[in-house]
Design a protein around this nucleic acid. Sequence first.
DNA 1: TTTATCATGTTAAACGTTTAACATTTCTTA
DNA 2: TAAGAAATGTTAAACGTTTAACATGATAAA
Lengths: 337, 337
Amino acid sequence: MSLKKVSHLTGLSIATISHVINGTRTVSPQSRKKVMEAVQKIGYKPNLAARILKTKISKTIALVIPGVEPKRSTNYFFMDVITGVRNKLIEVDYDLIVSTYGESKGEKDLRALQVLKKQWVDGILIVPDRKDGEQIKQINEINIPCVIIDRRIDGGRISSVDSNNEKGAYDAVKILCDSGKKRIGFVGGYLHTSTGYGRFNGYKKAINELGLVFDESIIALNDCFTIKSGISSAKKLLENNIDGIFVADNLLTMGVMKHLMYDKIKIPDQIGVVGYDDYDWMELVTPTLTTIKQQAYEMGYIAAEILLRKLNGFEGNEKIILDTKLIIRESHGIIRV
Amino acid sequence: MSLKKVSHLTGLSIATISHVINGTRTVSPQSRKKVMEAVQKIGYKPNLAARILKTKISKTIALVIPGVEPKRSTNYFFMDVITGVRNKLIEVDYDLIVSTYGESKGEKDLRALQVLKKQWVDGILIVPDRKDGEQIKQINEINIPCVIIDRRIDGGRISSVDSNNEKGAYDAVKILCDSGKKRIGFVGGYLHTSTGYGRFNGYKKAINELGLVFDESIIALNDCFTIKSGISSAKKLLENNIDGIFVADNLLTMGVMKHLMYDKIKIPDQIGVVGYDDYDWMELVTPTLTTIKQQAYEMGYIAAEILLRKLNGFEGNEKIILDTKLIIRESHGIIRV
DNA sequence: TTTATCATGTTAAACGTTTAACATTTCTTA
DNA sequence: TAAGAAATGTTAAACGTTTAACATGATAAA
């Protein structure tokens, strides 16, 4: 009973108060002043629930990401995405709801979407779990503007912001090749996501175009991204005579590096290595790690921008593909001109 | 107009529908069935805004953390906290709003709290920025149950969950001492937070109790936690003849390691090192890094539990102090019995 | 058979806003 | 100065729930 209270205090009608607060009509200076003072005095804050009930606008958007398991590397990637989203939303005074789902568990009920079904976020940013887009279908049903982050959906006609995974992978293989590597292995996986798939594709494309050998025995596809699987992947490739490795994930890279170091292999002379994502630790190891950097923060920021545009009535879809950046350090080898 | 729609479809009153949906009264099996079917058919979802307006219960809690800057190490720490909170809330079907504020900027208006002032979260989990607790004061004003995470507030009578920073630091110094180190330096800072302060205190206490030398010249207090300041801290300490370093932050640790490696210093023989927080990269460097691990995930999970207890009417404050864990690897030295 | 109790259903007020429609006062302008 | 326009204010309905209070019919107890 809050507007009402201000109304009593000022002797003005509820409607007038509302207009002062929202600036939806001109109100005489005197009245405005009275209202302002009363608001100040009793510390009036509009009740969001009531406002939403009436206007259907919550000024809140939801960000749905994988990550119920602690200590997963992708979590950290998404933290930068969150920060980007958040910073954009702050500019326009929107709130952010972060919701997570268990990627590996393939949660049937897509719990995270329950929030959304409660139908009171204005828009959704989502990192979907599979290319098939089951989640997206559900979102479409509730008919809320939506932008996809980081991953693509088959045949989707929905705005999205993601990395150029193909190019990233291509660049990685290319720099290894330019450093004289001929048998370049691939460590990655998760082909059911567009990121995993795209990187693998980029790898294959590079191998083809650069005239290298494509050989299944120097490809390790994992279904979980851990240091452990990085280690066993490295083992497998080593048995098959390689001189370069492109690793499509941060944790896998750690595993690969660990095993190579354990085996006392000289990087990059014997084997060149290029990783994915840019983390601080990569400057710390010897040799420092050449890697493909994704613009996580920008991804979040831009996705939020696009969504806000939609909320303001902009029609049509935008597909933004952010370039990856090749961060050249030492582990790839020495480029021969 | 949704309950109304179901009402039309079934011929039952709105009240009855509501009771079926919420299980707040017994309803005859026939009616119940009719309602269920209609709900299913039109895909009815209760309107949260209306429900909140009526009940004042949003089943939403807010988590407020520092972190508007991308790529800060603490961000990653908080990601695990978020995950912990989230997983607890999922169990009881609560939603999570994540809000961030700029720690370094000391934002005057405490923008993050605006969300809360909109007064529709049931409770707040917050990582406050300073010991003085300006934020907390504001939260108290709006009178929402609150639990503090990770940091302490002076004279606060509010429930909190944090790490035993003192003990963590103590353990770090102790194991260095046990490995024969006599002049152990400290790299840290941020004394205005209880974490920074606590770790420094633990260091001093250990130095005292273990009969080591306390010397200001081997103490480096930084006001920002970056690799760069880690490097310059290491430089400073090296000029003052040390044989051990305890670094109270992840990024600073990276900097220190980097500089020691650059200087070709033998770790741990010449200088023993113990870091803070446990990240994957610490297993990757040579030698692997001994460190003090905090239970970030648990911190979030437990804080959420406490808050939920409060929401269910539990009175009184709980102060949980989670033990840190000494993760023994190689960089501290060799323990002499 | 009468009465009290229980099971089930309905009515209508309330939650705190927004906003269309109307009412009054004050300016403009011919 | 009269009439129309603009400025400022009020009234009341609506948003979609929840829930106390009441109504009805059925069942159990006396």
